[in-house]
Amino acid sequence: MSTDQLAGRPTRRPRPSSPAAGTRGRPAGGRLSLRQRRAGAFYLFAGPWLLGFLALTAYPLGYALWLSFTNSDGLSPHVSFVGLANYREVFTDPDTMASLGRTGLFTAITVPLSIIGGLLLAVLVNQPIRARGLFRTLLYLPAVVPPVGAALTFKLIFDRDSGAVNGFLDLLHINGVPWLVDPYARWVLVALTMWAVGNVMIISLAGLQDIPKELHEAARVDGASPWQSFTRITLPLLSPVIFFQVVTGIIGALQSFAPLLIAINPTPAGVTSVPESNYFYMIDVFAQYFANGRYGYASAMLWVLFLVIILITFLLFRLSRGAVFYSVEPESAQTKRRTIGGA
C-alpha cells in the first residue's frame, strides 16, 4: 500500500494513451475536425460567388488596367505599350474634361434634390393618414422600373411631335417645346432622376421609423415646435441614413448612362447625337470604346473615374466626422480586458 493511500489522499490513475495522440487537432480514424468541416462548407457555398467574382469582376478590372497602358483598338492583335500616355490625354483633352464637368454639375443638382425630395415624401407618408400604405406603394413604383425602360418612356413622353407633354401644351394653346435638345434636355434628365426618388423615400422612411417616438413626445411636452423637433431630433438621428444616401447618390450619378437613351439615334455610330448638355463622362467612354475603337484610352478614362470616386468618398468620410451621429459609436480601440484583482 502506498503512502498516499495510508494518508487518505486519492490516487491519480494514468490516462489511457489515445491512438491519435500524435495528430494534434485531428480526431482519430482520419476524420476531419469540426473546423475543417466548417471551412469545407464555407468554400462549398461561397465557391460559386468566388468564381463569379474572379471571372466577372477581378479579371475584367485587371484586363482593363492593362489595356489602359496600351493603344489597343479591340480588334488588332498587335498592341503596343504606351505607358501613361492615355492618362495624360485624359487630363489634357478638353472634350473629356468638359464631359466630366457636365457629369459633376448633374451630380450637384440631382443628389441634393433627390435626398430632400425623398426625405419630404418619407415624412409625409410616415404620418398617421388613411391609405398611407397605398401612397407608399404608388410613390415607390417608379423606382422599380428598369432605367432603360424609364429613359425610353421619358423619350416618348417628351417627344416634340407626338409626346404627351407637348400634347398637353397644345390644349393650352402653347407652342410645343423641343424637350430633347438643348437647352431643355438637361432638365428632362433631372425630371427622370426625380421621378425615381421613391428609392430614397423608402430608405429615409426606414430611418424615420427607427427614431423612438418618446423623443418627439418629450420635446412636445417641453414646448418644442414641429420644426424644432425636426431639426433638433429627426435630422441628427437621421444623419447616418442621409450620409449613406449622399455617398451612394454621388457614386450613381457619376456613373450615369441613361442620358444615352434620351437621344435622337441611340446607337454606337450615332452617339454624338446626344445633346451636348447630356453628353456625360460615361457616354464619352461609350463613344471611345464602340464608335472610335480606342479601347486603351477608354479604359484609362474608366480608371480615372474610379480614382475620382475613391477620392470623393474618402473626402466625404473625412468631412462627415462630427456631422454624422451614430447610435453606437465605432470602437476606436480594443476594450481592455479586466482580470480579477487587476486594474
Rank of each mutant, 00 (worst) to 15 (best):
R130G: 15
R88S: 14
I115W: 06
V125A: 14
S68Y: 10
S76I: 01
P147Q: 04
P146C: 07
F53L: 15
R24S: 10
D93M: 04
P60G: 08
P142S: 03
R38G: 01
R24V: 13
D93Q: 03
G52R: 07
Y140R: 02
T107E: 13
G47D: 14
A20M: 00
T70G: 05
L120C: 09
L32A: 13
L65W: 14
R132W: 01
P147K: 00
W66M: 12
I115F: 10
R31I: 07
D95N: 05
L138G: 09
I116E: 06
P112V: 10
G149C: 02
G133I: 02
L32E: 12
G133W: 12
G104P: 02
V144G: 01
A41Q: 12
L105H: 02
S33C: 11
P77C: 06
T23N: 10
R38H: 07
P146S: 09
D95P: 00
G118I: 14
G30F: 00
F81K: 03
S76P: 00
F69A: 14
L51I: 15
N126K: 11
G40F: 12
A98I: 02
L138I: 11
G47S: 13
F69H: 03
G117K: 02
R130C: 04
G74V: 11
P48W: 07
H78A: 08
Y59A: 11
G25H: 09
F69E: 03
A20Y: 07
G25V: 05
G117A: 09
T103Q: 03
L124V: 11
L32C: 06
L124C: 01
A151N: 02
F42R: 05
L61C: 09
S80R: 12
F106I: 10
S33H: 10
D73I: 02
G22H: 15
V90I: 11
L56H: 05
P147G: 11
T57A: 11
G29S: 06
Y43N: 10
I115H: 06
L121K: 07
G117H: 02
F42G: 03
G62D: 02
F91V: 15
G30E: 10
I129E: 00
G52M: 13
R130W: 12
